[in-house]
């Protein structure tokens, strides 16, 4: 464990807590894409298949349970909790996210480190996580005005993979033969997808204006 990875995990934890806080306290999921949340459930479900078979550390297992539990409960709230479901703008959240999964599963079947069920599922979850934010960014473009909590959620979610990139660089230089191109490239693509969001988020913060993405 290094400071970059810890910062990344804490930033990721903060993003799901911000979203749960928003949904649980103000009973609203306005501006939040259910499609992205459903993709994250699949990302964690396929990423943590080995949660019961391979033990790395208490921290590792605890965080896996937190990410699995929070992503499932967010989807449950947005789908089945009456008050929250009412605030979900279904007309705008129309990204065909199942079509995102197909190329990811095909790519995982083609490019992986080892051709085993666990490894292919794990690789699939990496590719899917890289693009899981797309429905949320598309929804953001459509809904124009973004409330602070949703903006913070996306900012933290984008930031965590940025910290992971620093973690990979650190581990590359400190651990011999620590090389994982698949992880690095999908993590880089994932962070780059947030680039324009980060730019407008920074502008809105600098000019102290409401965050608005150009149509």
């Amino acid at each position: 464990m290094n400071i970059f990875r810890l910062a990344g995990d804490m930033t990721h934890l903060a993003s799901v807590l911000v979203l749960l806080l928003k949904i649980h306290t103000i009973k609203s999921c306005a501006g939040v894409s259910l499609k992205t949340q459903e993709l994250y459930v699949i990302v964690f479900a396929t990423r943590y298949l080995d949660i019961f078979t391979s033990f790395v550390s208490i921290y590792n297992s605890l965080m896996k349970l937190i990410f699995l539990g929070s992503s499932f409960s967010i989807v449950w709230y947005m789908r089945y909790h009456k008050a929250v479901h009412r605030t979900y703008d279904r007309e705008q959240d129309t990204f065909r996210h199942w079509f995102l999964m197909l190329p990811c599963i095909l790519l995982a079947l083609l490019i992986h480190e080892k051709f085993t069920f666990f490894e292919v599922m794990w690789t699939f979850s990496l590719y899917l996580e890289a693009v899981a934010i797309l429905p949320q960014l598309v929804l953001l473009q459509r809904t124009r005005n973004i409330d602070n909590l949703t903006g913070q959620y996306i900012f933290l979610l984008g930031g965590y993979r940025g910290f992971y990139i620093l973690n990979w660089i650190y581990r590359y230089f400190t651990e011999p033969h620590y090389v994982h191109w698949i992880t690095w490239i999908s993590g880089l693509v994932q962070t780059l997808l947030y680039a324009d969001f980060f730019y407008y988020y920074f502008l809105s913060w600098k000019n102290n204006k409401k965050l608005q993405l150009p149509a």
Binding site: R5, D9, H12, R47, N60, M63, K64, W122, Y164, T183
Partner: peptide
């Protein structure tokens, strides 16, 4: 082994 170190991340 390379197996474990890549899976020690979340």
């Amino acid at each position: 082994s390379p197996e474990t170190d890549s899976k020690d991340e979340l």
